[in-house]
């Protein structure tokens, strides 16, 4: 990998305690169980996986809404676990987030203009006029009209709201933007517009994106690097082109085979996974994917596989498909 690393995660985990009534010990839910990755200036890391695999937990850790249970998370070279409050405050400004649901992510009682100015109001000493100018500038940048400044969120469509959410994330000139399924709540025709907007802004501000999604066709469109997660662990990660062309891990291959391709003449190898995602409270021993894996053998049950390099991809599997 090349370029400026703005965020580095080393084996970060996040466990939750789950109370199970007075007579049982609280269980440990391993929402995220050891993830390592880097975010690079101007590049997009896509995080892919089915519901409950820890994607959103990862987003909460990277945006510092929650602290990791263990591991190292460095933003701009500073470890956020050991950093003092003042430094942490500055780091907070560098990471912003865009949520999935544009209907829940805007305060219904706050005018758009005020929502955009709030980051400046609480973080900087800018005057009223400057803030207003900055807000109007960004409104223009995300393709909205200046007269929207005085409107309430309920007057906008989903796509427009998502533009506003993107605009708000950019108000503090962040270096990293976490996009937590930013288009999955939108109409397909609007999805493309928002994706284009996101791509344009990345170019313009040299942003590092962490793009969380379960839609592989969207990921293929926007990502530079892809990380596939299963039950709190990244199982395969690598550059988009290698990963989409030569998926090694059986789970990645199953995911890719489930994506519809608009080509009626292509014969498709359809891998159907059986069973459900196991509970993260009691994950299967060994490789967590083994109960659903088509190429499972004895060793998969005993020992979790360590990720290792195959053609530039980090794969955690004993039986990867080789090309």
């Amino acid at each position: 990998m090349k370029g400026d690393v703005v965020l580095e995660a080393e084996n970060i985990t996040r466990y939750y305690k789950v109370e199970r009534g007075s007579f049982q010990k609280p269980a440990i839910l391993k929402a995220l169980d050891g993830a390592s990755f880097q975010l690079i200036k101007g590049k997009t890391l896509a995080v892919v996986g089915e519901s409950g695999c820890g994607k959103s937990t990862l987003a909460r850790l990277v945006t510092m809404i929650e602290k990791p249970t263990s591991g190292e998370l460095k933003i701009a070279g500073v470890n956020i676990i050991t950093a003092d409050k003042k430094v942490l405050g500055d780091l907070h400004k560098k990471v912003q987030i865009v949520f999935q649901d544009p209907y829940g992510s805007l305060n219904p009682r706050q005018k758009i203009g005020h929502a955009l100015e709030e980051p400046l109001l609480v973080n900087t000493t800018m005057g009223k006029k400057e803030r207003r100018d900055a807000a109007l500038n960004i409104i223009n940048l995300v393709g909205l009209r200046p007269e929207y400044y005085d409107r309430y969120p309920h007057m906008f469509s989903g796509g427009q709201r998502q533009r506003i959410a993107v605009a708000r994330a950019l108000m503090l000139n962040p270096e990293i933007v976490v996009l937590d399924e930013p288009v999955s709540a939108l109409d397909v025709s609007i999805q493309a517009q928002i994706l284009n907007l996101i791509a344009t802004l990345q170019e313009q501000f040299d942003l590092a994106y962490m793009f969380i999604s379960h839609d592989l066709s969207v990921v293929k469109h926007i990502a530079d690097e892809v990380m596939v997660m299963y039950l709190g662990k990244p199982i395969e990660s690598g550059s988009r082109d290698t990963l989409f062309r030569k998926p090694h891990h059986p789970y990645t291959r199953a995911l890719l085979s489930a994506t519809p391709v608009a080509d009626p003449f292509r014969t498709k190898e359809r891998i159907v996974l059986r069973g459900e995602l196991p509970s993260p409270i009691a994950p299967p021993a060994g490789c967590t994917f083994h109960p659903r894996c088509p190429s499972m053998t004895e060793i998969c049950r005993d020992k979790p596989p360590e990720p290792y390099d195959i053609d530039g991809c980090m794969v955690a599997c004993y039986h990867p498909k080789t090309y």
């Binding site: 809404i65 400004k93 949520f99 805007l106 980051p119």
Partner: peptide
């Protein structure tokens, strides 16, 4: 709701 989290992230 997400807007509360968003406000937190903003600082």
């Amino acid at each position: 709701k997400d807007y509360v989290t968003a406000a937190r992230v903003i600082g």
